[in-house]
């Protein structure tokens, strides 16, 4: 079975003959999945993101989005409509001076009929909980709100998959939570998510993780598989979630805490289980 995104042996360098920012990367994203790409700054994860919807073209290898190659120019707009993208800086991706008009931007570009627009704009804004801000100027919104408007702008185009290129890196904790919760909800509603991040706590909430380093995918697996080896992650200049650290320490003390603990609720569950057994 082929996935919604198929990346095969992709290589990419910013300058011809220069260092490879993405080096022989292959992976598949299945429809409906919530996948994280985790890596430190400069690991190549953002470059990889831009290869997925044809913003960059691979030097070798192929990227297929729903079977369409990003190298095929006749499909480029279909690909970008299928695979929407939300970027890091909330200020640098909103185009219009009013929220409503910004959400319309993608619809106007893809030639959606004028009569159809208001309905699609409203339901997209509703999906991210921003319908009350329709007539506001983007620069007066908070970072988290701006990112939700950016998501609405993508949603209005009815994508199958949304790629988030470190979309929470510049937000405060409240904004980060606001955006991540929204994205989790969208995933439950059937949209495939590719979440690029360096936050461990976020990656722990995804279903699959690919860890990048030096342009390569060096680890792949479920969160509990990935975070099982804390040493390996530290060598990659990454970390493990706080609850996982605590679980490891307890295990070292001889307490049989499950290795799957990643979040606070997991730990609460384990403590209850172990306390009941005493």
């Amino acid at each position: 079975m082929s996935g919604i995104i198929e990346v095969q042996n992709v290589r990419y360098a910013y300058e011809e003959g220069g260092a490879l920012a993405v080096n022989d990367v292959s992976f598949t994203v299945e429809e409906g999945e919530f996948t994280a790409i985790l890596g430190r700054n400069g690991s190549g994860k953002s470059t990889l993101a831009k290869l997925l919807n044809g913003l960059y073209q691979p030097d070798s290898g192929t990227v297929l989005v729903r079977g369409m190659s990003t190298a095929d120019e006749t499909h480029i707009w279909d690909i970008r409509q299928t695979a929407g993208m939300v970027f890091q800086n909330p200020d640098n991706q909103l185009v219009a001076t009013m929220v409503r008009e910004d959400v319309a931007f993608g619809l106007e570009n893809t030639g959606v009929a004028t009569e159809e627009m208001p309905g699609r704009i409203e339901s997209a804004l509703r999906a991210v909980g921003m319908e009350a801000f329709m007539d506001r100027a983007p620069h007066l919104l908070s970072g988290g709100q701006k990112q939700r408007v950016a998501i609405a702008g993508i949603l209005a185009m009815r994508p199958r998959i949304i790629i988030f290129d470190e979309a929470t890196a510049m937000l405060d904790p409240a904004g980060r939570r606001e955006v991540f919760d929204t994205v989790e909800r969208l995933n439950r509603e059937g949209i495939t998510i590719l979440w690029i991040t360096h936050f461990m706590e976020e990656a722990a909430r995804c279903r699959r993780i690919h860890v990048m380093d030096g342009g390569r995918i060096v680890l792949s697996g479920t969160p509990s598989e990935i975070f099982a080896d804390a040493e390996a992650l530290r060598d990659l200049r990454l970390d493990v979630p706080a609850m996982k650290q605590l679980a490891d320490r307890l295990q070292a003390q001889g307490i049989p805490v499950s290795g799957d603990v990643l979040q606070v609720e997991d730990m609460v569950r384990e403590v209850k289980r172990l306390a009941a057994a005493i």
């Binding site: 706080a242 605590l246 320490r249 307890l250 001889g254 307490i255 306390a275 005493i278």
Partner: peptide
């Protein structure tokens, strides 16, 4: 982290 570790150890081991 250290304090939580201590408290949990006390709770689950010596408890």
């Amino acid at each position: 982290m250290e304090d939580a570790e201590k408290a949990l150890t006390a709770l689950l081991k010596g408890g």
